[in-house]
Design a protein around this nucleic acid. Structure first.
Lengths: 240, 240
DNA sequence: TACAACTTAGACCAGATAGTCCAGTACCGA
DNA sequence: TCGGTACTGGACTATCTGGTCTAAGTTGTA
């Protein structure tokens, strides 16, 4: 396979592996896809065709390309919002907004978000639970310019990711994530109704759009006994 | 380098430096370029080739020459072994084997590993550190049949994943992972040299080959202050 | 003069590109 | 229910591109 086709093929395959296009979903149109891949439509079609022969994709004339539903499908390393995760467990997520204001960015934030220091950001503090006591204390800092509508949006019992998509037409595509175990400090213990020193899962996230533009940094503190972070990880084959 | 090639090289380099051809952009075709530079195509190609070896240009067959974007590499959502992670930080991983024996699988293990209950498994307990005090208490249970050589392999200061590949020709492709925050119990506290109740990052992993065959389940307990779990997550585009 | 190093023009190829046309599909408003 | 419209995958064409090769021309040096 030639170089451009190869690149397009790999890029598509990776997106499928990572669940960017989940099972059963339809890919963007060939013309759109070719544009995103930086390749002509004919080349994009060659890559799609190869994925189809491998059973990774199915085409339906005049309808589109689809990711086949697979019983044994590899669950992708998928980014799931708190709201989605709670709903997936059949519970109803609750969210209380503690703070929602526009302020200048700190140096660290400006660095992570690739904006000028002191540029306007929106800070949103929320307390989140699933029908019972609070489970998560959530602090999000967004670039004001990239999501202005969120400065005044009502996020009570709503998903920030969904509102970001609905109100601001911003879609989070990738997040750089880390989690570590920590002990609850005074403020966190009070908010999450646990003893000081209780185990807390501390997570930090920088979320990007498809273009690689950072949109928000989030810091979540979960009750250790009420939350577990799950992911599927892939191991790159050395040399490949 | 001869004179004509030298001239062409300098001219092109200057154009790139001065932003005539910006990052990510495509240069005019070789024939056109050769005309503008007042040299033959072969000479122009020599100059282009030299710029390519210097990393200032990239060629793509049948497409053109491109000015590389300066990329801040996107680390994929990658499975990294403890050994690899420690090495990536420039430290030397140390591993002490506490236990290494073949025993029948429990019901839970048989279920996760898709083997018959009481089938033979290898259990390996290790204490791991990076040059200093122990950081991780690591328990791995492998299917004996799928990796028999590991029953007697010496894993002191070695990576299990690497030995798995080297001795058993088994390559871990994907892992189902979860982590949660926990408090250190007596045994863990003693091994990791932390107070009872100190925050611990508890991780659990089921590792699969490319064929989707489960090979091992691992349970790691990390000192909360010494380890952080990192991943890149992708968000499936709902419905679109 | 002879030789080597460099440059040139030209041709050919497989791969890639933009563009067109077509028939089938989905969707929306009347 | 119907019709219009925008969009889709499928197929095809003409054109361009880098990669490779050959043969001839030019220049400088021994």
């Amino acid at each position: 396979m030639a170089e451009a086709t190869e690149r397009a093929y790999r890029s598509l395959k990776q997106d499928i592996d990572h669940g960017v296009y989940g099972p059963g979903s339809r890919l963007p149109g060939e013309r759109d896809l070719a544009g995103r891949l930086g390749v002509s439509r004919v080349t994009a079609r060659r890559a799609l065709g190869r994925l189809a022969t491998e059973g990774r994709l199915e085409s339906s004339a005049q309808r589109g390309w689809f990711v086949p539903e697979q019983v044994l499908g590899e669950p992708p390393s998928t980014l799931q919002s708190f709201t989605e995760m709670v709903r997936a467990r059949g519970l109803r997520p609750t969210t209380t907004v503690l703070r929602q204001e526009v302020r200048p960015a700190t140096f660290d934030e400006a660095d992570e978000l690739r904006i000028a220091p002191a540029a306007a950001v929106i800070q949103i503090d929320r307390l989140r639970g699933m029908e019972g006591p609070p489970v998560c204390y959530d602090v999000v800092v967004l670039v004001h310019e990239r999501a202005p509508a969120l400065a005044r949006a009502d996020l009570t019992d709503r998903s920030l990711y969904e509102e970001l998509s609905r109100l601001c037409d911003v879609w989070i595509h990738r997040s750089a994530y880390w989690v570590q175990a920590d002990a609850a400090d005074d403020a966190t213990a009070r908010l999450l109704q646990v003893p000081v020193g209780a185990p807390i899962l501390l997570s930090h996230e920088v979320a990007y759009t498809e273009d690689g533009v950072p949109v928000l940094v989030g810091t979540n503190r979960y009750r250790g006994d009420a939350y577990r972070f799950e992911a599927d990880l892939f191991r790159p084959r050395a040399g490949l």
